[in-house]
Every structure is written in structure tokens, then in C-alpha cells.
């Protein structure tokens, strides 16, 4: 089902959790809401679920006004960060809960409920845990049961709040792939919230980057990584080298020295130069935009990571670059650096 969010504003006291947010989600998408804590992503998710209400704005699920309905009437599956499994119920009863509390008129008979629960437990590959209590499960198992429970009500959309946040790194990786393939299988429109960029880029087919209650960029994982729309997105996704520069016309200066790179249309004034670590080409001294002395080199895998103290900064500005291992860099060596790809954003304030 498609979701449409329009002009949502939500304040907690004087703090704007959501500041005029618009979002359209197409049927069958797997969307990630990515942002640091306090960016409003969880609030947005909760508003779509009916667990929170906006101060103003609209939410439509499949063209139908959702705000006139409470959480229990929206048929939205919600997977909580800490799973929120009912501790006094077995795994089976947890999954069956949504079916058992349906209005009498549409409630299924016991045999149907049992069959459905069994199917769902099969789907999450945990049918053998049916009679256990949540406290007897591992974190990853709880997560999958929480998902099965949310799917039991045949949700029109599925919302997941930091679905892997409470798991350790290894389980996290496994569950990511599993969630992707599960989505391919059942194809229900899904939104998940995460603060982990890797998770968002790896799992989602579209990523919404949020900061301070606003949407900074919406795009495919490739788009938000390769073409960040704002300074925030550039800094938040992937590792970036950030240098304070001045733009005057098409000239860019660092500490008053011209860099000999085009300003790419950035407005004149104070600005920030963003370069990915691996987009900084290393050459012999005197051939690039920047110059510096290598202070330290660590080599691992296909790259060598070098700390470079930039010239003209009295050694105070140190950046980290990733260079291929075709030529071994040496500590103490003076090198020049040339950004292959970069973005310049006007500095805020």
C-alpha cells in the first residue's frame, strides 16, 4: 500500500521533532529512514503507525486518511526496537495475539489461527520455538518473532523501529540479508528506522536521510552516497574529509591560498569542501591542489590509510586519506593531494 505524508509538524514543547515533513512511499517499497538520534525519524514512524499524533499535517495510507483512526484500527504492523514481546505469553500466543483480539465478526476459528501462526513461524524459521517464552530466546530470535507477530495481522504496511539496534554485530548482518529476502518474498510496503548508514544503504531500495526534524535527501542508496544533496548528508553518509574554505566567484581558497579547483557553482563566502577519503588522489609534491606531509601510514586490505598534515596550517590540520596500494607511501614524505570528486557547500551561519 502506498503511504503519503504531507506537511507533518510535531513539537515536544519548544523542540520541533518534525518540521514540515513530506514523504511519499510507493507500494511494495522497502524504505529506510536514516538519521542521527533526535532527527525525528522514530517520531515520523510512530505517527504513521498511530502511536503518536502530529500537531498538523496529513497522513494517508492508500489514499485513505489515517489520522482519523487509532493505532488499533490502522492495520499497520509495527516492530519495536526492543521487540515488546508479551512476556507472559508463549511465542505461539504472541504471534496469535493479533488474530485473537480481532472483532468477533471477523475473527477466525481456532484451527485457522493455529495454521496461520504455524505458517508465520515457518516463515521466520522459528516454528520449533512455538512453546517457549520470550525470555528463553536470543535477541535475534526475539526480533524475528516480533516480526512474525506484526505480520500475523496481514498489515497493509510494515514499520520497523531500529530493527537491528539491540543486536550484536554478527547477528545484525545476518538479519539484514534475511529481512531483504523476506521483503522480496512478501512484498509488503515497509519502512524501517535506523541510525546506521551501512544498514540503510545495504537493506533499503530507497533511503530518506533526516536531520533535526527535516528531510535532507530522498534517493536510492547510490544517489545519497554519490550525490549527497546537502552538507549534512555528505558528512553523515560515508567518511568525508571536510575543509573550511572561502569561495570568491569560481575561486576556492583554503587558509587564503588558492586551491585551483572550480567552485562548482557554490555561492561566494565561507564554505565547506567535502571530499571522500578515497577521492583524494596522491601525487608528487607540487602537482596538486593541496600539499602536506605524511605523518603516519597504516596498510590493510586493498588500501593504505595515511594521516596527512596540510602545509600552511602549521601542522594543525590533519586529514586521513585512503590511497590504493600501487605505490607505498612513507611517513615524512611530502605529497600533493588532488580531489577527484568533491562538493562545496556554503557554511551554515
Amino acid at each position: 500500500m502506498a503511504i503519503e505524508v504531507k506537511n507533518i509538524v510535531k513539537r515536544f514543547g519548544s523542540f520541533a521533532a518534525l518540521d514540515n515533513v513530506d514523504l511519499k512511499v510507493a507500494d511494495g517499497e522497502l524504505l529506510a529512514l536514516l538519521g542521527p538520534s533526535g532527527s525525528g525519524k522514530t517520531t515520523l514512524l510512530r505517527i504513521i503507525a498511530g502511536l503518536d499524533w502530529p500537531d498538523s499535517g496529513e497522513v494517508a495510507i492508500d489514499g485513505e486518511n489515517a489520522l482519523s483512526r487509532g493505532a488499533s484500527e490502522r492495520q499497520v504492523g509495527f516492530v519495536f526496537q526492543h521487540y515488546a514481546l508479551f512476556r507472559h505469553m508463549t511465542v505461539f500466543e504472541n504471534v496469535a495475539f493479533g488474530l485473537r483480539v480481532q472483532p468477533r465478526a471477523i475473527r477466525k476459528d481456532e484451527a485457522t489461527i493455529r495454521a496461520r501462526v504455524k505458517n508465520l513461524l515457518d516463515l521466520v524459521q522459528l516454528d520449533w520455538l512455538a512453546n517457549r517464552y520470550p525470555s528463553q530466546l536470543s535477541g535475534g530470535q526475539r526480533q524475528r518473532i516480533a516480526l512474525a507477530r506484526a505480520l500475523a495481522i496481514e498489515p497493509r504496511i510494515l514499520l520497523l523501529d531500529e530493527p537491528f539496534g539491540a543486536l550484536d554485530a554478527k547477528v545484525r548482518k545476518e538479519l539484514r540479508q534475511w529481512l531483504r529476502s523476506l521483503h522480496n518474498e512478501i512484498h509488503v510496503t515497509s519502512i524501517f528506522v535506523t541510525h546506521d548508514q551501512e544498514e540503510a544503504l545495504e537493506v533499503a531500495n530507497r533511503v530518506v536521510v533526516m536531520d533535526k526534524g527535516k528531510i535532507e535527501q530522498i534517493g536510492s542508496p547510490g544517489e545519497v552516497y554519490d550525490n549527497p544533496a546537502t552538507a549534512f548528508v555528505h558528512g553523515f553518509i560515508g567518511e568525508s574529509i571536510v575543509l573550511p574554505v572561502d569561495v570568491a566567484g569560481d575561486a576556492v581558497r583554503l587558509d587564503g591560498r588558492p586551491l585551483n579547483i572550480p567552485a562548482l557553482g557554490a555561492a561566494s563566502g565561507a564554505a565547506k569542501l567535502f571530499v571522500r577519503r578515497h577521492d583524494m588522489a596522491v601525487g608528487p609534491a607540487g602537482t596538486g591542489a593541496l600539499e602536506g606531509a605524511i605523518r603516519h601510514v597504516r596498510s590493510f586490505g586493498p588500501i593504505q590509510r595515511a594521516e596527512v598534515a596540510l602545509a600552511g596550517s602549521e601542522g594543525r590540520t590533519v586529514i586521513e586519506i585512503d590511497a590504493p596500494r600501487d605505490r607505498e607511501l612513507q611517513a615524512g614524505e611530502i605529497v600533493s593531494l588532488q580531489p577527484r570528486r568533491y562538493r562545496i557547500f556554503a557554511a551554515q551561519e
Binding site: S72, F78, H82, A84, F86, H88, V101, A150
Partner: peptide, 24 residues
């Protein structure tokens, strides 16, 4: 969250109180 979970699964308040909260 357990109350919100119950609500999102379609339980009305009565069900949430008597099947989820009080048993806990």
C-alpha cells in the same frame, strides 16, 4: 512498548488491559 504493540496488533483498550497489562 508492550501496550503500543498490543494496540498496533489491533487490540482495543479492554483487550490490552486485560490480556496484556494485568497478566504482566
Amino acid at each position: 512498548e508492550i501496550e503500543e504493540a498490543a494496540a498496533s496488533l489491533g487490540a482495543n483498550r479492554w483487550h490490552t488491559v486485560f490480556r496484556v497489562i494485568l497478566p504482566s
